[in-house]
Amino acid sequence: MNWISVFADPNTQWILFGSMLLGLSSGVIGCFAYLRKQSLMGDALSHAALPGVCLAYMVTGTKSIFFFLLGAILAGILATVSISYITRNTRIKQDSALGIILTVFFGVGIVLLTQIQHSHSGNQSGLDKFLFGHAASMIQQDVYTIAGISVVLVALCILFFKEFKLLSFDQGFAKGIGLPTILLDQFMMLLMVTAVVIGIQAVGVVLMAALLITPAVAARYWTEKLHVMVLVAGIFGAISGFVGTIASSMVNNLPTGPLIVLAATVLFIISVLFAPNRGIVAKAKLRGSVKSDFKTVAHQGVKEKSL
């Protein structure tokens, strides 16, 4: 394997850096989404971003990440508003509302995508990559943008840590002490949409949700404290981004997205098995020690009785 050449190439270094920052920021944001029981919202948002991205491309005719961001944010806001409108005003539950919005938006996106493929020729090749992601096709400017936005996202999460913490654990209390919960809610959604949009290019629409969910769930196994969880999820996300991108650049013809997701999944499985207190091994050990304790106690009890 040509490990050294992979690291020596400055272009690859940038891409690696970009996907690590991407993993970091989505891991951090995913923690709040997980605690607020909105994990699948990331899934819905990433699918809903597709028509926005396609429309942005159709209107501007360029593959500029800023216009994509704009289109996807508009589509994302429309999606979240529709989901909450449906759940509030009809008897349809949130999961079905999510599913409806996800599939219908994605259907619109696919229709637009085929329109683009049929009308413009040649220049649309990059758009296909949005479905599964292809980090290697990112140009340096994209990487700068991704890195910059990721840093801003993480900084905002640190800045609003207290508010987000309160919102995640006790929304009623947050409202009671005068926090603008609806505004914060929308703000957090905006952060999630942004993370999804910058992630789409590296991971793809379909698997972007995993980058938000999996590191956060894995981190939950290791700790009971929010700040530790956010830190661990960020690190897990960064490691997955690193490993996935390296693997994708070494083996030909492999899309980056699935590899990053698989790396995150391996970390998740390790967490499920070996995390202290919550992991399967730790639980089995605890059960074993309780059992042996009980045995000795029961044995003594029998002895005392027989005496």
């Binding site: 997980y34 699948l40 999961d95 949700a209 995993a210 999996t214 769930v217 590899l259 999944t265 919550r278």
Partner: peptide, 26 residues
Amino acid sequence: SGVQSDASIGVVFTALFAVGVVLISL
């Protein structure tokens, strides 16, 4: 084992789907 239902859905299906995509690409 204590993971929220929607998160466990998300983790499982994305992992399996990723395996599928990698297999197809390979």
